[in-house]
Simulated assay, not measured.
Amino acid sequence: MNKKLILFAMALLAVMAFACNKKQTTDGSANDTITTPITYTGTGSVTQGLGIKAINSLYNCSGGRVTSVGAITSSDGKIWTVPADVAFSNSPKLPDLYNECNGKTPASISAVDTTNVPVTVIDPDGVIVSGYIFCDNYFELYINGKLLGVDAVPYTPFNSCFVKFKARRPIKYAVKLVDWEENMGIGSENNGTDPLHPGDGGFIAKFSDGTQTGSAWKAQVFYIAPLADPNCITENGSARTSAGCNLPASASKAYALHWALPATWYSADYNFSSWPAATTYSNTVVGAKEPYTNFAPQFGAAQFIWSSNLVLDNLVLLRFTGN
């Protein structure tokens, strides 16, 4: 078994033992149980405080941030992987367009050889499609229900990808997005003097079949943090909105809400029609760096998208059916 998977399994056992003991702590130590009585009536599972780090780093890059994975127990006894359960360790990495970790920093598309990028066959009777992708921070791309590959850099430095695949039309796109965290279970990162910076996300893509990101895509959030009070989330149908939420004063007072991902969310026949429409964001709001700006002409009219809250929504699924 993969060493990282063994370590993660051990951490999950530790979390399960903690949940059984129900020990109360108030100092923000690992995997705080709920110390402040709350009445929550929404559909999510509530966690409070920091989780237990299970994997110190999925990936190492000079100058990059540590890409940790952890686990945390909610007040209803469920165990959640934070920031997300990802396929990074055992999945193909998507080809680089721009990647400082691999020494690839072209100033424009003229310095990139896209002709030698291999074509991944999803459907033998399909058409060949190419695409440009940039994500802050991490994504996994499914085509017609099959995993094409994962982002080559889970956290930082930022990178971008160029892909080629053969698939049957209409192409069913499914994307898992993760805004990574350094403080396990509370959706925050260390930013200068702010140890609880909530961070933000952003995803943009353009494909040669005419598909490009925009408000026609669907986006559903499954992990929202950090929150001063989980009751700030409003639910209307399938929409989970955190626009009126405040940030917590400390790690021990930070709440998070979690929802289980549908088992077949990425399948070609999954019905995502009830999901909210993706929200679009400007390049300025996302703060896109060279991995995107050096290739802005290739992305054309594609727009940055996410769920309704670019800052607090940390695990987001996207769906779209192309031409």
Rank of each mutant, 00 (worst) to 15 (best):
D151M: 11
K218A: 15
P124F: 05
N99C: 09
G201K: 11
I55A: 06
N236C: 03
C61A: 06
W217N: 08
D125H: 01
Y173K: 13
T211N: 11
K3T: 14
N2C: 11
L317H: 14
A268T: 15
V46N: 02
D125M: 06
K172V: 14
A17L: 07
T264V: 05
S238V: 10
S45Q: 04
G185Y: 02
G214R: 06
L257R: 00
L247W: 05
D136L: 07
C20K: 01
T81I: 00
A225Q: 03
A251G: 07
S282G: 07
L312Q: 02
K146R: 14
F272Q: 11
Y255F: 03
G70R: 04
A54L: 12
N309H: 12
V82H: 07
I109Y: 13
F88I: 10
L13C: 05
F272R: 14
Y223S: 06
Y138L: 13
G287K: 03
T25A: 11
F88M: 11
G322S: 09
W217S: 06
V86A: 02
D200W: 04
N190W: 09
N144Q: 14
I109W: 15
E235H: 14
D200A: 08
V69Y: 03
L247R: 04
I186K: 15
H258V: 02
K22W: 02
Y173G: 12
L227Q: 02
F162C: 13
G244A: 08
F304P: 10
S130N: 07
T213R: 10
G44K: 02
I122H: 05
T73R: 01
T81F: 02
F165Q: 09
L257N: 01
G51T: 01
D76M: 03
S75R: 15
P262D: 03
D113H: 05
S282F: 05
A19E: 05
S252C: 01
S208Y: 00
T25D: 10
I72S: 02
Y155N: 10
K78S: 04
T81V: 01
